Computed example of a mutant assay.
Amino acid sequence: MKAKSYLVLGLGYMALLVGCQSQTPQQGGQTDYPLLTLKPENRQLSVKYSAVIEGKQDVEVRPQVSGTITEVCVKEGARVSKGQVLFVIDQVPYLAALKQAEASVATAEANEATAKLTLEGKESLYKDKVISDFELRTARNNYQSAQASLMQAQAELVNARNNLSYTEIKSPVDGYAGMTSYRIGALVTSGMTEPLIRVSDNSQMYVYFSMTEKQVLSLTAQYGSLDSALLSFPPIQLELNDGSVYQHTGKIDVISGLIDKTAGTVSLRAVFDNQEKRLMSGGSANVIIPYERQQCLVIPQGGTYEIQNRIFAYKVVDGKAESTPIEVFEINDGKEYIVEDRLQAGDVIVSEGAGLLKDGAIVAASAVKPNTEEE
Rank of each mutant, 00 (worst) to 15 (best):
K82D: 08
S284V: 14
D260A: 09
S132C: 13
G185Q: 03
E194D: 14
S104Y: 11
G282N: 07
L17W: 08
Q30L: 14
P195F: 04
D133H: 14
S5H: 10
I255N: 06
E352L: 07
G282M: 05
S232G: 07
L119V: 00
A313Y: 04
P195E: 02
K4V: 14
Q247R: 14
E112N: 15
N162K: 12
K170G: 09
V350F: 10
Q237I: 09
K170M: 13
E194P: 10
E336H: 12
V199G: 06
L86H: 00
E60L: 14
Y49V: 01
N274Y: 03
T189A: 01
S225N: 05
V254L: 04
A365Y: 00
K39G: 13
T37I: 09
T31A: 06
L150V: 00
K214H: 06
A155T: 09
I131E: 08
Q26N: 12
E340W: 07
A110S: 12
Y337I: 00
S132W: 11
Q57V: 10
D273Q: 13
A345Y: 04
Q57P: 05
A110L: 11
E54N: 15
V158N: 12
D32K: 12
V245Y: 04
I349E: 05
V8M: 06
E135K: 11
L98E: 10
Q144V: 09
Q154Y: 03
V368L: 08
Y13P: 00
E109R: 08
E375R: 11
Y206W: 14
L357I: 06
G10D: 09
Q275V: 09
A221S: 15
G355W: 07
Q222I: 01
A103P: 12
A97H: 02
E135D: 13
A51I: 05
K129D: 05
V287G: 01
P235V: 15
P93R: 01
M179D: 15
R198E: 15
K48M: 07
N141I: 12
Q301P: 04
L164I: 02
Y305T: 08
S5A: 14
L36S: 04
Y13K: 10
Q154C: 01
S218M: 11
A313E: 05
I89A: 04
T265S: 11
A148Q: 14
A313R: 02
G353N: 01
G55I: 07
V271W: 08
L36N: 05
L136A: 11
L98Y: 06
Q301R: 11
T324A: 03
